[in-house]
Amino acid sequence: MLMGIQEPKYKAVYNWIVDNINSGELKAGDRLPSENELSARFGLSRQTIRHAIDLLGQQKLVTRVRGSGTYVGGEVRQGRRERYMNIAVISTYVDSYVFPTVLREIESVLSGKGYTTQIAFTGNRVGREQEILSNLIDKDIIDGLIVEPAKSALPNPNLHYYRELMKRQIPVLFFNSNYPELGLPYVAMDDVRVGRKAVEYLVKAGHRRIGGIFKCDDGQGLLRYKGFMQGMQEAGLRAKDRNVVWIDSEDLVDMEYWSDYLFSRIGDCTALVCYNDEVAYVLSGICGRRGIRIPDQLSLVGIDNSELSTLADVQITSLPYPMEELGRKAAENIVKMIENPCFDGNYLFDSDVVERVSVKILGSGS
């Protein structure tokens, strides 16, 4: 290297991989360390790591396999020779108003393609998720896994189980949310866009003092909040921190118990974006018991367009969650990932507001 000319940062990664291939430490078919692992090893950004990997790929020294990793060699690694025609599905809940329809569609599509479906539920608990994943790995009789992550907004202790499945070249597809650290594909509602559209609808109705209730332990809650903030900023509005309330799965069950605190936070709002229809439904009941009239005193927008949105005393404006479509897409994509390891299983669904009567139209000065 010439004096005064600094070698590009990506070359350290590039040279390390090439040297290990030449020395035999990395053999054809071996899986490279993940981008996160290489980033930690070399103290470089993931973008720099990706640039080195891309260059190696152009030279046919490595091959990326979507949902599995990057492997030494210029040929796409073939899937396991033995097929079990069995796909596992892990969901958080069995009795939620959303999941039965999603799971029914997944099972229907997979059955039509000749697969049996093995379904398990975590109750949104990472401990139960660990038990299920450990059992699946021990038995080793699945061709793919469709999974809704447990408490996806929180650090997860089970990531090594997913990495083991990736090492075994078993395709993994998340639905509703994902664990970003893994870089695995997922099928979900476009939660950021949905959060933004909820705010846009309220702003169009004349609301300016808009608050929100979001879940803090699920990735969907964080994304819907992100969209909420985007919508407020695009409308030239400032979201007050006190008007944004964060809840977890347990708080939702006990919402009546801590409702005094809730209303102390949102008391000056004319409208709320609710994490989902369940939050909106429970809140509407509490408002009724407190003598707070919806929508005259407080407007609500939910997300999911579930049956709950029509069961409240005042039917709730909501953005539909694509239950049937999402289930079908998840099943179709996992089969494609099994048949073609390079298939990109990612897909986000858009949604538009279904108007009911829970939002009041205000004057421009409100």
Rank of each mutant, 00 (worst) to 15 (best):
R328W: 00
V76F: 11
D190L: 02
R265T: 08
S34C: 09
M189H: 06
S309M: 11
S318T: 03
P180M: 11
K360F: 05
Q169A: 03
L165R: 04
Y93I: 03
Q233D: 05
D218F: 07
C287W: 09
P33G: 05
E82S: 10
S306H: 06
E25K: 15
I146R: 14
E164Q: 15
R81M: 02
E332N: 05
V354N: 04
A198W: 02
D218A: 14
S45A: 11
I170H: 09
G267H: 12
G291D: 07
V282Q: 11
M166P: 00
G365K: 13
A271W: 15
A330M: 09
D254G: 07
V65I: 02
P322S: 09
V353A: 06
P100T: 06
F343N: 01
Q47L: 13
Y93M: 13
Y162M: 06
N15T: 07
G267D: 10
I247H: 01
Q315S: 05
W16D: 14
Y347K: 11
C274D: 02
S134K: 15
I90L: 14
A198G: 03
R289A: 15
S364C: 01
R128L: 01
G112V: 08
G4M: 06
A188Q: 10
V354Q: 08
Y162V: 00
E181K: 09
T116A: 10
D350P: 00
S177W: 09
R289V: 00
R80P: 01
N124G: 08
N135G: 08
Y115N: 04
D54N: 14
N178G: 04
L222G: 12
Q315H: 03
